[in-house]
Write a protein that binds this DNA or RNA. Sequence first.
DNA 1: GCACAAGTAAACTGGTTAGTGCAGTTTTTT
DNA 2: AAAAAACTGCACTAACCAGTTTACTTGTGC
Lengths: 198, 198
Amino acid sequence: MKLTDQKRMQILDAAEELFHSSGVEHTSMDQLALQAKVSKRTVYNHFATKDALFQAILQRMFDKLAQGGEVKFDAAVPIDQQLRRIAQDEVALLSSAAFLRVAKIAIMQVMQRPELAQLMSDSSLGCKRYIDKFLVDACTAGVLKITDIPFAGKQFIYQLKSFVFYPSLFGLEQQTPAQQAHIINEAIALFLARYQAK
Amino acid sequence: MKLTDQKRMQILDAAEELFHSSGVEHTSMDQLALQAKVSKRTVYNHFATKDALFQAILQRMFDKLAQGGEVKFDAAVPIDQQLRRIAQDEVALLSSAAFLRVAKIAIMQVMQRPELAQLMSDSSLGCKRYIDKFLVDACTAGVLKITDIPFAGKQFIYQLKSFVFYPSLFGLEQQTPAQQAHIINEAIALFLARYQAK
DNA sequence: GCACAAGTAAACTGGTTAGTGCAGTTTTTT
DNA sequence: AAAAAACTGCACTAACCAGTTTACTTGTGC
């Protein structure tokens, strides 16, 4: 690998680490250069400003997370099993270190500079990408009975987010895999109690 | 009112305003004194350090919010009506400007300095104070059937928080009263579908 | 009305930080 | 091997900011 790409990666890695642990504001470019084992001047040769570096970090982290499988509705499989697949994928994402990092950095910035807010709502990660389609298909097949599908989808996702994502984000607690399984089971039970076609 | 109390209030009001709109870090003590129409020295006569001022702000805001009625279970009233009362109170709190302010300021600080995390989990506001007791009573009366009561209480509150609180916190959208009513109705429908005793 | 508590403006201290300029070294390309 | 591109270390600027000092004025209680 070329030296210059190597250095660029060192800078991005260091920035990801420091922005996450200390916050963007509290990370000085001198610290950053030190951690990246690169001269400060080199940092500025790659990124014109601190803000440009910040943008590049967000972009790189989003790209890392953008991949991820889609669960397609299959009438031959019990609905609770399919929902469990979706929920398990989502919980794995929401509790992954990579996702928590980008979320923390992004949310801190958004709260400080509200003009960046749509940055967050625009970005579609995880099951948010396909859950509406899944629910439509399940309704069409007569397995579920939902009047407001986007709303019901949010209800399902928000269950997972509330129990798994926000507590981790605010540094309150992490869940054990057993707790995660319980959260998933209860979210599905709640959802099916309301929306399963009888 | 004595001049000194007047000045103190001006300082706290200015700090609340600026800490909210610009963040604690981005608010300088010079700006703050200007906005409060008070000399900078006077700020320091009332509050030894910026951090002391920040603590005082949080305390004042919490005190403002601490009051709020408790809904007690009443076997003579339909359960959905009672849950609606609880949800309405909670949504009113979660979407109030006062609550959003203190939450935003507190959360920004917590995310920057994770050692303050228990500050948030300790503080019990809104229906979190009494919902467990309410659910226990409802189960005892045979109206609801819940195995894990604290978990179920969280499921209910989290519905409201997810739809009302977080979107406002991140500056994404505000709900109209009609939308709020819809959110409340659906949260209750979801909850009762799962937990109402048959 | 006097004494003291509180407020004021402005300059200052000491520290931090984003970003630049430069002279010299190493790596890559041709 | 020579030219170009990238990296390095270090000193520098210009700005910002928490908190202090000083010399002075205004409000309050007795």
